[in-house]
């Protein structure tokens, strides 16, 4: 038999009036009418064997209405959480009498950070995520309690930090001391977990652009994190998303902040090398 994708799409649209075509679109993402974002980019060199020809932001896979919410900061619900992040930035907490501002002054000092994390931390001797670095500062420089890894406070702070790099290309290093974690993350990405035996690649490399029930599959990029989701009306962290996706394969998931998810974050981030940092983005 010769299955024809276009026929199926046409049949689907006949069967369901109002259904949208499944391919990613060619729209351009310009934020606030001035900041031009790179939402499609050539494959990073390490992805030569991947079953795809370019990398794309998840923005291209959303409806026009959802896309529009990210094009103007007044419409982007994620910006409310950035404001909360600014309050947290300036709040003195913990035994040392410090706030983030004590050491880092204005949040604009964080420009460039989101683009290169996760990255190898020489002093700690490990690959660190932005969330790990935030909690490192809270515990060791402020004498404050760490934020929960996927908590609202963590998401707010990550959104504030991501915003400072908005529009800069993702550029995480995968060689040198980070390479071992990167290899581990790659292995996780291609492992078929759970009773449904599905890997990240099954959905986000082999089937991006296709529909899985009502969901339009994207490439599962994390350049837009943290992400405001209309579905749960909050900011979502990358590890929260990883957990949800693995859970959906009927698997025993890894924990947010675990070595496995740090490795996976490094690997997935590197699949987006060249896309603009987009956080806080809007998805459904």
């Amino acid at each position: 038999m010769k299955f024809n994708a276009m026929t199926a799409v046409a049949a689907l649209m006949l069967a369901m009036p109002g259904a949208v075509a499944a391919d990613p679109d060619d729209d351009n993402l310009v934020i606030n009418g001035e900041l031009e974002m790179t939402t499609k980019a050539p494959l990073p060199a390490h992805m030569e064997e991947a079953n795809m020809d370019q990398i794309m932001s998840g923005w291209h896979f959303r409806s026009d209405e959802t896309q529009a919410l990210e094009m103007d900061d007044f419409d982007n619900p994620g910006m409310i959480f950035v404001d909360a992040g600014i309050d947290q930035w300036n709040a003195v907490e913990g035994s040392e009498g410090n706030s983030c501002a004590t050491c880092h002054e204005d949040p604009s000092s964080m420009k460039g950070v989101r683009a290169v994390y996760p990255k190898w931390d020489e002093e700690a001797g490990e690959v660190q995520t932005v969330a790990m670095q935030i909690n490192d500062c809270r515990e060791n420089n402020m004498g404050a309690e760490p934020y929960g890894y996927t908590s609202g406070e963590m998401a707010n702070m990550e959104a504030l930090i991501a915003l400072q790099s908005r529009g800069m290309p993702v550029d995480v290093a995968i060689d040198g001391p980070a390479q071992e974690m990167w290899e581990k993350g790659k292995e996780i990405y291609y492992t078929r977990y759970g009773q449904l035996e599905l890997s990240c690649a099954n959905c986000h490399e082999d089937n991006y652009g296709n529909m899985i029930r009502a969901d339009h599959l994207s490439q599962g990029q994390i350049n837009g994190f943290p992400t405001y989701r209309l579905k749960n009306a909050k900011l979502n962290t990358a590890h929260g998303r990883f957990k949800g996706c693995i859970r959906d394969t009927r698997a025993h998931t890894f924990d947010p902040g675990s070595d496995e998810f740090v490795a996976l974050e490094l690997y997935v981030a590197s699949r987006g090398n060249g896309l603009s940092v987009e956080g806080p983005s809007v998805r459904n």
Partner: peptide
Amino acid sequence: TMMPAYYKVDGFTRPGNAFTGKAP
């Protein structure tokens, strides 16, 4: 194939307790 095996009970990697994300 990506299609799940509907009548199979072993040989999985980190199978969970249905969609709870927990161990079976």
